[in-house]
Design a protein around this nucleic acid. Structure first.
Lengths: 110, 110
DNA sequence: GGTGTATATTGACGGATATCAAAGTATCTA
DNA sequence: TAGATACTTTGATATCCGTCAATATACACC
């Protein structure tokens, strides 16, 4: 029984042998998404917000970056499968995606 | 009692509040070190080698990269505190650094 | 429709990075 | 000391990334 995880809507098997080329190619973007200080703090803020999530408008100021920059980082986190967003009128709420860090955890505990 | 970890020979407190600027700046390079597919496989190979470690000369071929490129990646992993190296004559042996992934683990389990 | 607020996209710029070939350094052995 | 092997550093190149200002889009309300 292999452990597995979803990345970019494609299931990846970690398997038992040396880390496969395909698995590495799927894992790397998740680490890359967390490799920027601003994005780390961004993800942390979203995670601390819990199930309700946090409005994008409340993320710009504490990180001292322009609105487009925060928007860009949120997109990176979203495309890496780490956060989700839902629109509520004019606002957009971000929350941690279910099983967001499973792939990372499995690699670390390998 | 705070959790803590060592990065770049400097102790960093994760604390309880939102991820601090300093903590993010120390964590990001660890994720960055793991954000490249070649480096991920490289780290995996070193980890699989266990306590004995693995010779650098045995890492070039399986990853299909030039020898200088592998040397470069090993340097990145070493400077991120993920692997250690010791010389044995002409050869250099790499092994996983103790508590290599503690910082990452603590952030994930935050 | 028009106005205001929230968020996304575009375009540009400076800096980082993955890669290789070539050259340099270190160590062993003869 | 000379040659061979293992590894590192340098220099060059192409690509990627973080950032912002400017612009565009989406939505609510009047």
């Amino acid at each position: 029984m292999y452990h597995s995880f979803m990345t970019n809507a494609k299931q990846v098997q970690l398997g038992k042998g040396p880390l496969a080329d395909v698995a590495a190619a799927s894992l790397a973007p998740m680490f890359a998404a967390l490799s920027d200080p601003t994005r780390l703090r961004l993800f942390d803020l979203v995670r601390r917000a819990g199930n309700d999530g946090i409005c994008s408008c409340d993320l710009t100021e504490p990180l001292d970056r322009s609105q487009p920059t925060i928007s860009h980082h949120l997109k990176v986190l979203r495309e890496a499968g780490l956060v989700e967003s839902r629109r509520d009128g004019t606002w957009i709420w971000y929350s941690v995606a279910p099983h967001a860090l499973d792939a990372v955890t499995q690699f670390i505990q390998r």
